[in-house]
């Protein structure tokens, strides 16, 4: 199993220059860290639906840094059932602390591309109530994130990615470690959500509506 994933990673790494062009957001190529192009093979707006990798552009640097460290030290993406997470963990293993800092800083300064999906109006309405009623209190009215709570931006994420992460929080794949306070906070909150709630709120955010 493991071997297949690494293989896939390698295939994608072979594609970087194309991905950069596709993403259209790599304007500041001058101070672009060397590995960033590799990252964009999966994380660009154009490839993220296919790869399951979220857009990183515009995300808070501290959040990106924390996630990369967690992938690297096995707090995220280590479980056998976490197929996507394992892929990323393999990537993170190759990064030094310096790489992590400069990549996190770099992506946080890029602008995410808006990709929105559509959904059934009733589902979106349910998602809207959910979002305004609770998520917004930590992630901000426009899903722009709120540093006061270490809550990341969600506005650039796709519905599928959001749903998967909510499931991971709820089932304990994320936010389990005692020292991971932000993760535990999100995990605790996710236990209030039914599968239907998750679909609805993910659809609402994925539609770019907050």
């Amino acid at each position: 199993m493991r071997a297949i994933f690494s293989l896939m990673t390698l295939v994608l790494i072979a594609l970087p220059p194309v991905a950069v062009v596709l993403s259209g957001n790599a304007l500041a190529t001058t101070d672009m860290p060397a590995q960033a192009a590799t990252c964009l093979a999966c994380h660009s707006a154009a490839t993220s639906a296919a790869s399951g990798a979220p857009q990183l552009a515009g995300q808070q640097a501290t959040y990106l840094q924390k996630q990369l460290q967690q992938f690297k030290n096995g707090q995220r993406g280590a479980a056998v059932s976490d197929v996507k997470g394992q892929q990323m963990a393999a990537m993170a293993a190759t990064l030094s602390a310096d790489d992590i800092n400069s990549l996190a800083r770099y992506f946080s300064k890029q602008q995410a591309e808006v990709i929105t999906s559509s959904a059934d109006a009733a589902l979106l309405d349910q998602g809207r109530r959910q979002y305004i009623g609770s998520c917004g209190a930590c992630h901000g009215a426009k899903a722009e994130g709120n540093m006061a709570f270490n809550a990341p931006a969600l506005s650039m994420l796709s519905a599928d990615y959001i749903t998967l992460q909510l499931q991971h929080f709820k089932t304990g794949l994320r936010g389990k470690d005692k020292a991971d306070k932000p993760g535990r906070q999100m995990a605790l909150f996710s236990r209030n959500l039914s599968e239907q709630d998750m679909q609805a709120v993910a659809a609402y955010i994925g539609a770019g509506m907050p």
């Binding site: 009623g133 609770s134 930590c138 605790l188």
Partner: peptide, 14 residues
């Protein structure tokens, strides 16, 4: 649950 003037208690508990 839900937003009144302040955030919901569920959020505060988290």
């Amino acid at each position: 649950t839900g937003r009144l003037i302040g955030p919901p208690v569920q959020v505060i508990q988290s």
